[in-house]
């Protein structure tokens, strides 16, 4: 069933991430501030991949794949209508943030951004229990992955941004753990995981059903 449920996020991600994230913040109480900030965004110069060292681009593309995975997972979960109450609300807010991360990485990487894989979440988005269990695993994995890659980043500005995202993933991990009835912080120290370890775990889920053919497209193609 590898291609049974390919979800295509083009329609929800590329342009809507902005508005979605804004909604998330609006609901969090930042109505005035959020509106002002969005209005100010147009003044920011577009970024280009050229400003980022090649080795950092490689790390960013790796992080981008994990962000694609998370964004798709939350988006599909939201669409499945299986979630209720606080869990549904959390999926909505976290999904918007993961899509904002995708958008930010893609903008930073420009044409060097890796394309979006196709996903098959094997049905875990269709029940609240399996959604939460998977969300906890994903978020803990993201924390360990960012931590494992951080020391490889050369650019100070990229590093500061990556660390700021790293702690947001940790907040998400704690949030999902709380909703799942798990202790949000089980140890005084969070350990990093290597890319090899992370890849192995991701592969074992079979959630990535197909890698993109091209890495040079700024927008992935529609697949129907």
């Amino acid at each position: 069933m590898s291609d049974a449920l390919p979800i295509d996020l083009v329609d929800v991600d590329v342009d809507d991430a902005l508005a979605e994230a804004h909604h998330g913040l609006t609901r969090a109480g930042f109505i005035v501030a959020g509106g002002a900030a969005i209005a100010g965004l147009g003044a920011l110069a577009p970024t280009t991949g050229a400003a980022v060292p090649a080795s950092d681009r490689e790390v960013l593309n790796y992080a981008l794949v994990l962000e694609y995975l998370q964004a798709a997972f939350y988006t599909e979960s939201e669409r499945s209508k299986a979630l209720k109450g606080k869990t549904a609300e959390a999926a909505k807010v976290v999904g918007a943030v993961e899509r904002a991360h995708v958008k930010a990485f893609r903008e930073l990487l420009g044409k060097k951004a890796v394309g979006r894989p196709h996903f098959d979440f094997q049905g875990v988005t269709e029940k609240e229990g399996s959604f939460l269990k998977t969300a906890v695993a994903f978020e803990d994995l993201a924390v360990a992955a960012y931590k494992g890659q951080a020391r490889r980043i050369r650019s100070k500005s990229v590093l500061t941004s990556a660390l700021g995202i790293h702690t947001v993933e940790a907040r998400h991990a704690a949030w999902m753990r709380y909703l799942n009835g798990d202790q949000p912080a089980v140890s005084a120290f969070d350990l990093p995981q290597s890319r090899k370890e992370i890849d192995k775990i991701v592969a074992s889920t079979k959630f990535i059903s197909r890698r993109p053919r091209s890495t040079s497209r700024s927008k992935p193609r529609y697949t129907g």
Binding site: H22, L25, A36, V97, A104, K156
Partner: peptide
């Protein structure tokens, strides 16, 4: 809130660079 809203709104990496 102003700063972070801007970050969330998709200017994340650019804006953080300036702050940092």
């Amino acid at each position: 809130a102003l700063t972070t809203a801007a970050l969330a709104a998709g200017g994340a990496l650019v804006t953080v660079t300036a702050i940092g």
